[in-house]
């Protein structure tokens, strides 16, 4: 019996199905995302990269940095902080509420707790606990915020403030997420190390900045040349034990400069609808409406689609 056409048709269907399910359907859903406006202002996110940083990305790609460095922050869940914004006039009511949500404290401690605002009442609690606290604190005139705090190994290592989501990679071309952490994640490397000089030293010889690092040196991105009467402004300030012989200096090439510009451009993680995170300066007026509702309405960003915390 000749099964040729049957096999042909069958595998065509199989491949087409997986193609539709894993490629076309996601493409339809989020293949055409746009920049979004975040925060109260008119910040557009993500921002496009400067020309030099974009050229630096090419250096990053050409030298395969992504075989050792990921560009993706993971989070294992979220915790909640309950922060008192304004104590209002009903002090007695608030103290008894504080005693209810923090059973371990005395009335004196509760009084001290609400003296100064903003003041975190609870930190790192689960969502049901935060919801219960919200109910207890539903006193007229009392203003509080419930803040969502991402948790997880990556976040605690300081590699980022929240999980990476699709929106973050809107302009990445090619997208180099990486799948090995032989080196640390680089999502926010520009914020962790803001000094271009340090980045250059690290690229020239990682041992100078991180003793025992297994990162290879990228000397070929630098030029060793005869120093003039005065050292070039770009020349690396090498520590004494790594100094080159007298009369010579190490100067970064355009590629090294561009790569560093790219690394420095990796510094923003903004709170998004789908990926909330605590915003640094808390503005009390934003929290005005939260005292009637449960933890579902967050002041930092709405998080209606956030999975329930563990």
């Amino acid at each position: 019996m000749n099964h040729g056409p049957l096999i042909f048709l069958g595998i065509f269907l199989a491949l087409a199905a997986s193609w539709y399910g894993t490629v076309v359907a996601p493409l339809l859903q989020f293949g055409h995302q746009q920049q979004v406006t975040v925060g109260a202002g008119s910040t557009r996110y993500p921002a496009a990269r400067s020309g030099q940083a974009q050229r630096g990305k090419d250096v990053y790609r050409a030298n395969g940095c992504f075989y050792c460095h990921t560009s993706q922050v993971r989070q294992s869940g979220v915790k909640f902080d309950v922060v008192l914004v304004s104590a209002g006039t009903n002090k007695a009511g608030l103290i008894s509420a504080a005693l209810l949500i923090k059973p371990g404290i005395t009335a004196d401690e509760a009084r001290k707790l609400i003296e100064q605002t903003p003041k975190p009442l609870l930190q790192g609690v689960t969502r049901p606990e935060a919801d219960a606290a919200a109910k207890t604190l539903a006193i007229p005139d009392v203003k509080f915020e419930i803040i969502l705090v991402p948790v997880g190994g990556d976040v605690e290592r300081g590699w980022g403030s929240r999980v990476s989501v699709a929106q973050d990679y809107l302009y990445e071309q090619p997208l180099m997420l990486g799948n090995q952490r032989i080196g640390p994640d680089l999502t926010t490397i520009g914020a962790r190390q803001r000094s271009a000089a340090s980045h250059l030293l690290h690229l020239y010889n990682p041992q100078m900045t991180v003793k025992g690092s297994t990162m290879p040196p990228y000397r070929f991105l630098f030029e060793k040349r005869k120093a003039g009467p005065r050292p070039s402004p770009d020349a690396l300030q090498l520590p004494a034990e790594y100094a080159v012989e007298k009369g010579f200096e190490i100067v970064p090439t355009e590629k090294a400069q561009a790569l560093v510009a790219y690394l420095l451009s990796l510094d923003t993680q903004l709170a998004l609808f789908e990926a909330p995170m605590p915003t640094a300066p808390k503005q009390p007026e934003l929290g005005a409406s939260t005292n009637q509702t449960s933890a579902a309405a967050f002041t930092n960003t709405a998080a209606a689609n956030q999975p329930a915390p563990k």
């Binding site: 490629v23 293949g31 990679y169 997208l175």
Partner: peptide
């Protein structure tokens, strides 16, 4: 089939953002 599709969507006329990771993974 799979090679030409991946080439088309990644190298020839690249898709946006994380879609690249999905096509690549696929």
């Amino acid at each position: 089939w799979s090679y030409s599709t991946a080439q088309l969507l990644l190298v020839v006329s690249p898709v946006q953002g994380v879609m690249q990771a999905i096509v690549n993974g696929w």
